[in-house]
């Protein structure tokens, strides 16, 4: 038996919005510690890894590990039928799950809607992601990051990220000209959502596709802050933390100059 009740249903709605552009079908792997998902986009350039801890649900019950193969677009459509304040309950028979049932209760408990989503068999490659100590980590406002990506998209399809001791520079160069945004280290502001915290071991300079970054910033509604992890010649990590409920992590392979 699998049952998970999420009092803050909007979280699940936002999560689906954040990943459904990147991946079409994916397995939600459920076990006693929570619900996890790992999937790559078709061209194997980006990867999304998300975790919803069991502590985020009240109650959470999963007797044995199993996975729910879901078409994310369909799930997202069904979740659109839930109100933002609704309580969402997920249920499935972990023995022979061929459908996932979703129940949406309005806060006043006067309206209860129920949906069933057919499941699929998805055979998916899993990647092992090594724990990395990044050369540089940046914690900054998620809306600011979204804006930078959107602005530089005007100039080019790719952005260079250069991290030095006290500042990070995003720059782009294209046919019509060039542009850059520099953010200075700024840890002491009163409002945490305006902070810029840079931790640096060695300075790095990497190039990434803006199209994918724009896609990642669909995670912005999940958190006020975003964490970027960069190492030379390694994939970029973009992480949105959902307080104690879990996280969503995006990985993006860098662009490589000619060998």
């Amino acid at each position: 038996m699998f049952e998970a009740r999420l009092s803050q249903g909007s979280l699940l709605k936002k999560l689906l919005e954040a990943i459904k552009e990147l991946v079409t079908d994916a397995n939600f792997d459920c076990n006693e510690t929570g619900i996890a998902l790992q999937a790559m986009d078709n061209s194997h350039v980006a990867l999304v890894s998300l975790l919803l801890r069991s502590e985020g649900f009240h109650p959470y019950r999963c007797d044995r590990g199993f996975s729910l193969g879901v078409n994310l677009n369909s799930l997202s459509k069904i979740l659109k039928c839930a109100g933002n304040d609704d309580i969402i309950t997920l249920k499935a028979d972990d023995n022979s799950a061929d459908s996932l049932s979703l129940c949406f209760e309005s806060p006043s408990n006067e309206r209860v809607s129920e949906y069933e989503l057919k499941l699929m068999d998805i055979d998916q490659e899993h990647l092992s992601i090594p724990e990395t100590d990044y050369d540089a980590t940046i914690i900054m406002s998620s809306t600011e990051f979204q804006r930078i990506c959107r602005d530089l998209m005007v100039i080019s399809e790719s952005v260079s990220v250069d991290v030095a001791k006290d500042a990070v520079v995003f720059s782009a160069e294209g046919e019509m000209g060039s542009g850059s945004v520099k953010l200075k280290q700024n840890p002491s502001v009163d409002k945490p959502e305006e902070q810029v915290v840079i931790e640096l071991n060695t300075s790095v300079s990497l190039q990434f596709s803006l199209k994918y970054l724009m896609n990642f910033t669909k995670g912005t509604p999940l958190s006020d802050q975003v964490m970027l992890g960069l190492s030379e010649n390694m994939p970029l990590l973009v992480e949105y933390k959902m307080d104690d409920a879990g996280y969503i992590r995006f990985y993006l392979a860098p662009k490589i100059g000619e060998e």
Partner: peptide, 23 residues
């Protein structure tokens, strides 16, 4: 510059034999 791929950075895990075989 060419776009890199995640496969060249992360290794593919063999799919968990327990779950699929049961299914």
């Amino acid at each position: 510059a060419t776009q890199g791929r995640l496969d060249s950075f992360f290794t593919t895990l063999p799919s968990d034999p327990k779950v699929p075989s049961k299914r």
